[in-house]
């Protein structure tokens, strides 16, 4: 059925046949069984579905799967390297940057995009960078602290795992 696409997801090449209307998030969750990427709304507000496409954070509910043909996609499942957590994952855990955990994967992916471009962001910059990601549990406070802590750890050499 539908269109044939080929994309790299978390380092592995995946071949899929998808309906033209299939969203990238549906392909990730339903066809590839990577359920760490969540759907929290239907209007591209909440950011729970944030993944990286060709190195940039995007909301995967806002992109058709066919548009990702040939792209390099990274999801939350691709952030750790074996048992070595990404510094953002470590920081979210240590700083209590999550409660129910539903927004967390998208929040981490959005923050990773920020840190790729700004190694030492101010709190204001962090709060601006996660503007498109809604969390209803934490009041954002410990998320901001976690992103700041991850930035510090990465500057101190706790580099992202290979490929992150």
């Amino acid at each position: 059925m539908g269109e044939h696409i080929s994309l790299t997801v978390n380092g592995a090449v995946r071949e899929l046949d998808v309906e033209p209307r299939r969203l990238l998030v549906q392909a990730i969750r339903e066809d590839l069984d990577l359920t760490g990427t969540h759907v929290g709304c239907d209007t591209s507000q909440c950011g729970a579905c944030t993944v990286h496409v060709d190195g940039k954070a995007i909301k995967s509910c806002t992109m058709l799967a066919v548009q990702a043909d040939g792209a390099d996609v990274k999801t939350i499942e691709g952030m750790a390297n074996g048992d070595a957590l990404h510094p953002l994952q470590t920081a979210f855990w240590e700083k209590h940057g999550l409660q129910c955990g539903f927004c967390t994967p998208g929040m981490i992916m959005a923050a990773a995009d920020l840190l790729a471009n700004d190694a030492d962001p101010s709190d204001e910059a962090i709060r601006h960078a996660i503007e498109g990601n809604i969390c209803r549990c934490t009041g954002y406070q410990n998320i901001v602290i976690a992103v700041r802590a991850a930035a510090a750890a990465m500057r101190d050499g706790a580099g992202a795992p290979a490929g992150a």
């Binding site: 969750r29 990577l34 359920t35 760490g36 990427t37 969540h38 759907v39 999801t75 939350i76 499942e77 952030m79 750790a80 957590l85 994952q89 979210f92 855990w93 999550l98 955990g101 539903f102 967390t104 994967p105 981490i108």
Partner: peptide
């Protein structure tokens, strides 16, 4: 509980 949530291994209803 956090290790499963920060790695995308949480299991919510739609998962």
């Amino acid at each position: 509980e956090d290790p499963r949530f920060i790695t995308g291994e949480g299991r919510y209803l739609d998962d």
